[in-house]
Structure formats: C-alpha cells, structure tokens
Design a protein around this nucleic acid. Structure first.
Length: 313
RNA sequence: CGCGAGGUAGAGCAGCUCGGAAGCUCGCCGGGCUCAUAACCCGGAGGUCACAGGUUCAAAUCCUGUCCUCGCAA
C-alpha cells in the first residue's frame, strides 16, 4: 500500500525504518517543524528527516496541519499512518483517508503522551503495543491489533522504547496486510477502563526520599531521557541516571548504623553511594553533578565534595 | 553572537584570587600485616597542567586567540 507517514521522535523513526524495509511504499513523511535546540539555539531538523532523505522520501514539515488540508487531499496514497507524531490531527485531515496509529501501551490503558515512561514509573511488569484507528479523541480509536510485552527489571526507557517500536512495526505491517486484503477486524475500546498520561515536566523528576527505594528506582528508569530523576544536596542538583535497591549485607549494616537518621541521609561515600529512604536503601550507580559528565558512583565519589551528609528537603 | 561552567597522571578532583619545586582520593605495580576485608601500613610507576601565541628573571596560575566537553534555557 502507499503510505503517508506521520511521526517525529525516535519511536517514529524506528517504525518508519520498518515500513521502508517492507513491501509497502512510503510516499511521504510528515513531521514537526525545525526548532531551535542545543547550545547556541541553532535550528535543528528532527532526525527523522535524515532517514526520509536518505531513502528519497519527500518530507513535509508544518507548524499547523489545518491550513494544508487541500495539499493532503492531492497526495497519492492509500492510507495515513501515525506513530508518535506529537500533535492531534484535525478531523478534516482524518476524513481524507483511513488513518491508523501505533501506540506503545495496552490501550485503553495509558492513553496520551507518555505511555512507556508511565508503565515503568508504575513498576508494571507487562506493557504492550496497540495498533488502532486514529481519531480526533486522544488514542481512543478502534483497535486492530494488540500484543503484550514483558518489561525486564533491567529495562529503562532508553532500552525499552526500541523494543516496543520493533513490536509496533510488526503489528503495523500485519495490520496493513489485513487492511489490504480486506480481513482487518476492529474492536472498540472499553472507555470505562481508560487511563490518561500527561506530558512530563521538569519538576516531575525530583526524587522524594520519603517514598520507597523501589519506587525511586522506577522513576530513575522511566525518566532517564527526560526529565531525568534528580535531587538536591547543599543546593546543588545531582541527576541520577542509574540506580538500584541495595539489599546486600554491607548496605544493611550501614542502614543499621544510621538507624536514628531521617530518610535522605547519605549512608556511605567511600565507594558506594547509598541513601536512606522511607522504605529500603537507594543506591546510585550513575549520576551527574552540575557542569559535569555522567559518572559511575565510584568515580563521582572520588572527587565530589559533599556540602551536606543529607539530601535537601 | 541565548546564559553559564570546565579541560591538571588510567579515572574523579584540588591548586589559579595574590606567578616562585606537580598535589588529593581512587585505580595500577611491588612488599607487609590480618582468621578475614569494600580495612590498614610501606614503597613504586605514571603528567608537554587542552592547543597556539603574549607578558615576565620565572606561568597550571596573568593577557589574547583556537579546539573540545558539560549544565541551564528553549
């Protein structure tokens, strides 16, 4: 089939690559417009544009889609496919052709912008990918295909996203085949079971050490790309990129030594970075001081001068 | 020219204000001690202080330029 693809970030890139390597033909890639980014605020194109250009696929970048409805009507294609495009498509656009979407969750659970992060954040063991009809409502269209996927305790957002994107690609290709030969079936979502997840904000990353160590580790895993889990000590922000719950004897012994201290107390600074929490011991494995590089805990501790032996409240 | 921080031994850092013998913590190599070690003791290797100019009797340190890295903001 001739596909017009809508998508912008990494998840969309992976699905697009899968489409390009399939028997289906991608007639164009629609992504968000260039934005100033990085030091110097230079204008940067979404990376997906390079993939499109490398495959000689035309790229369409619009600030708003609505003024370009007539242009879309003139594009020779059979179907629209969206994958993490980043904006809601107007009804007048969805009326032109059938439009299907790849969404990395078990819909109707986790409708919205950050399904992968929230699955990890909540400590889910199972998530999945859904291919459904794109509607004006947020991720509420009829489901074509859905498949579960196990989240490993070792997975963080960075490692899980490509796995779900690969699964999404597989389901998308199956759906396209079924639509093409007329065997596709749709199942409405059960709206009563729907949950919604919002865009993440900077302040969402702040770690609250009154919570359990396990939930803090989940936040680290979920937010590793953005906004990055962090805490303050002596007024300085320390970002945490990798952490675990410490349950070994050495850690337990340290916890016993500081039995009377409040949560947020740093238990050990020799070679391991342990912090007492409201439930268990939080161990930092990779972190970053302001202006510094991301370091292993041992390297970080060699040179870092603690201004306090407890995390700021 | 968006704002800011930095480049010193294999790693992480101090020293720069106020120029005058290259330091700390770890790692590495060798030896010692211990029932034991994520402990301790002794010794050792390892640096063109990012690069290029300038000032000076003397520059990691002061001045100018270049390259690279990172944080913030978007």
């Amino acid at each position: 089939m001739k596909v017009l693809f809508f998508g912008t970030p990494l998840f969309a890139e992976i699905v697009l690559e899968g489409l390009l390597n399939s028997k289906h033909q991608v007639v164009g890639v629609v992504c968000q417009s260039d934005k100033p980014a990085g030091r110097g605020n230079k204008m940067v194109s979404p990376h997906i544009t390079q993939i499109a250009k490398a495959n000689n696929v035309p790229v369409f970048q619009f600030e708003k889609l609505l003024p370009h409805i007539e242009d879309f009507k003139n594009i020779d294609c059979d179907i629209f496919v969206t994958a993490s495009y980043g904006k809601i498509l107007p009804k007048s656009l969805l009326d032109i052709k059938l439009c299907i979407n790849v969404h990395p969750s078990l819909l109707p659970k986790y409708r919205g912008a950050t399904p992968i992060q929230n699955a990890i954040l909540n400590g889910d063991v199972v998530t999945g990918v859904t291919v459904m009809k794109t509607e004006v409502g947020m991720d509420d269209g009829d489901i074509f295909l859905q498949e579960k996927f196990n989240i490993s305790p070792e997975d963080d957002y960075t490692s899980l996203l490509p796995k779900l994107a690969d699964l999404g690609t597989k389901l998308l290709l199956e759906t396209l085949d079924k639509i093409e030969n007329g065997t596709a079936k749709r199942t409405p979502q059960n709206a009563q079971d729907a949950t919604f997840v919002k865009l993440l904000k900077k302040e969402d990353g702040l770690l609250d050490f009154s919570l359990s160590a396990e939930s803090l580790v989940n936040k680290v895993r979920a937010f590793v790309e953005f906004p990055v889990a962090c805490f303050k000590i002596g007024g300085e922000i320390i970002k945490v990129y990798k952490a675990k719950v410490a349950t070994d004897d050495f850690a337990k012994q340290k916890l016993a030594e500081f039995e009377k201290n409040n949560f947020g107390t740093i238990l050990c600074t020799k070679k391991r970075f342990l912090i007492k929490t409201g439930g268990g011991i939080f161990e930092i494995l990779k972190c970053q001081a302001p202006n510094g590089k991301i370091l292993d805990a041992a390297a970080f501790l060699n040179g870092y001068h603690f201004k306090s032996m407890a995390v700021d409240k």
